[in-house]
Amino acid sequence: MLSIKNLHANVDGKEILKGINLEIKTGEVHAIMGPNGSGKSTLANVLTGNKNYEVTNGNVLFEEKDLFDMDPETRAREGMFLAFQYPIEIPGISNATFLKTALNEIRKYNKLPELTPTEFLDRIKDKAKVLGLDDTLISRAVNVGFSGGEKKRNEIFQMLILEPKFVLLDETDSGLDIDALRIVSNGVNIYRNPNNAFLVVTHYQRLLNYIQPDFVHVLYKGKIIKSGGKELALELEEKGYDWIKTEEFETENAWPESE
């Protein structure tokens, strides 16, 4: 589904991603963990086409197509979705207008007919129920006046409405209490199937209890320095990142030319 090769990216002229390699296959869930500032959100922004993030090297294939040939909206229509770490408030645009416009654009691109108003409304009601969101939310402005938790739930709500193939969750669990975490994870698990894939960015192993990953990667200073199964998350929870950092340090010393 997604193949990342030697990805380098700059923010404000500073190199943040320093050669990422990652293969994500259909049906898989990958988790990325790593300390603050290691480049997790940068990766998410690069993959979704935020123009503030400059790709300097490497390539990414999304379903065999060159990702960097596509603008953000095309990536979305091809099935990519990012649940933002900090969802954006948009005063003056209702969730209904926002989602209807997005959904119709995606459907148009995929040569599907627009949903009728009733079909759209049914879908909204259905998915709102899954996430325990109030029906009235749909007429409110996008994320305006939403609590932190509501914003995160709204991202997953959007995911369920738009039905993407590849989903990036950027710390969707941060700031959620245990009930909200359960609801959000449930939303993800309901949606998870053999035809889609997830890349889950988190600091906490507890999310991975609910959304069980197939692979866990550690991102540190712009590189994936360790990969493993879901037990790696438990190990990180227990020991922190220091033990890997040490390994990394040693690695760098052994092959100084790699820097």
Binding site: N50, E73, I90, L103, I106, L162
Partner: peptide, 9 residues
Amino acid sequence: FYIRSRGVP
């Protein structure tokens, strides 16, 4: 960017 990332041109 947020709106575009949802498929809107």
